[in-house]
Amino acid sequence: MEELYTYLDDAATYLENIGQVTYLEGLAEAGENLFRGEVCQPVSLEQKEWLLDKLSSIHIETSSKEDVRKAFQLAVLKGMKGAVQPHHSMTPDAVCLFISYLVNKVLEKREEPALLLDLAAGSGNLVNAILNQANIQLSAGAFEVDETLLKLAFVSANLQKHELQLFHQDSVEPIAFEEVDLVVTDLPVGYYPKDQIAKSYELQSKEGHSFIHHLMIEQAINKTKANGFLFFLVPNFLFQSEQAKQLHEYVKKEANILGLLQLPKSMFQSEQFGKSIFMLQKKGEEARQPKQALLAELPSFSKKDALADMMNQINKWFQEELRI
């Protein structure tokens, strides 16, 4: 993993230095070279030889999918430190793995393949982690509006050999994608500027711009099959805004609220940036309404004993409330 990260970092930095590209764009190019086994950029002979020399030191076929994902993730994180765009952020690795565990819980007894959708894929770290950890055959579709992040997700998925369909589109707009068994999205937070598009949503704001995180929850529920599951990373203040009542009523009408798991406070710079995992099941004949929703504040992921105890409680909840 370290060797792979070193290659990606060195090649991305080199491409940044010799061309009119950012580190993140250079990283996507470095990953593309690795996937194709050749230098794909129009560079001088000397530059090509330097890149080929770096490329020859890496044997991607001996790396596990998780090593590829983690090496790529580290390089993306480095690039994001230098990026000024506020939407350039990444779902933390521990959270990706914890959501993967929850996804496996709800798909545990499923025998046929499942289809997953991510409405805001970013660089693809969350969706790729879930695909790596899945205990059943799982394919996915993902939307991302930022071109650089989409290219990173594309290259990362290729290197991990995942069946992932990627779309360069704002996922609040009408999307041509089939209904899915599962939605997992780290929701962007803020106002959605396209009022005309928002008008087609039940969760549109009565005045001013609508919340993009509310519209995405509605879009996700619409794109999920009856009885399907939804996992969102949401801000802790989700049900404290002026539009919270409207959101709560809509969600209760369309889905069963399974739980809200607050992520450790230590993960965030300040309380205002804190997030939780919001778990839903779309209503249907086989959907179960738990008598008691799963509400908990997760311990720090570095405290192994406390986390193991919490996971035992979560497993017990799934068994008793959802019969999983």
Rank of each mutant, 00 (worst) to 15 (best):
A157Q: 02
N158I: 07
N158H: 09
N158E: 08
L159Y: 04
L159W: 12
Q160N: 03
Q160L: 01
H162Y: 07
H162R: 12
E163H: 09
E163K: 13
L164Q: 01
L164T: 07
Q165K: 10
F167G: 11
H168P: 01
S171D: 07
S171C: 06
S171Y: 06
E173T: 12
E173V: 15
E173Y: 14
I175W: 09
I175K: 09
F177L: 09
E178H: 05
L182E: 00
L182D: 09
V184D: 05
P188M: 10
P188S: 07
V189N: 05
Y191E: 12
P193L: 04
P193R: 07
K194T: 11
Q196G: 09
Q196S: 13
I197H: 13
I197A: 13
A198K: 06
A198Q: 00
A198P: 00
K199M: 12
S200V: 11
Y201R: 04
L203V: 03
L203T: 03
L203E: 06
Q204N: 00
Q204V: 10
S205T: 02
E207V: 14
G208A: 09
H209C: 07
S210G: 01
S210W: 02
F211K: 13
H214G: 01
H214N: 01
H214W: 08
L215D: 04
M216P: 02
I217D: 02
E218R: 06
E218H: 08
Q219F: 13
A220S: 15
I221P: 02
T224A: 10
T224N: 04
A226E: 10
N227G: 01
G228I: 08
F229H: 11
L230D: 02
F232C: 05
L233T: 10
V234M: 11
V234L: 00
P235Q: 05
P235T: 06
P235W: 14
F237V: 08
L238S: 00
Q240R: 13
E242C: 13
Q243A: 13
A244W: 11
K245V: 15
Q246G: 10
L247A: 07
H248R: 14
H248T: 08
E249S: 15
V251L: 14
K252Q: 15
E254H: 10
E254W: 02
A255R: 02
N256P: 02
N256A: 11
G259P: 04
G259M: 11
G259N: 12
L261P: 00
L261N: 02
L263A: 01
M267A: 00
M267L: 03
Q272A: 15
F273C: 09
G274K: 13
G274R: 15
K275H: 14
S276H: 00
F278H: 09
K283T: 10
K283N: 14
G284E: 01
E286F: 12
Q289S: 05
P290D: 01
Q292A: 03
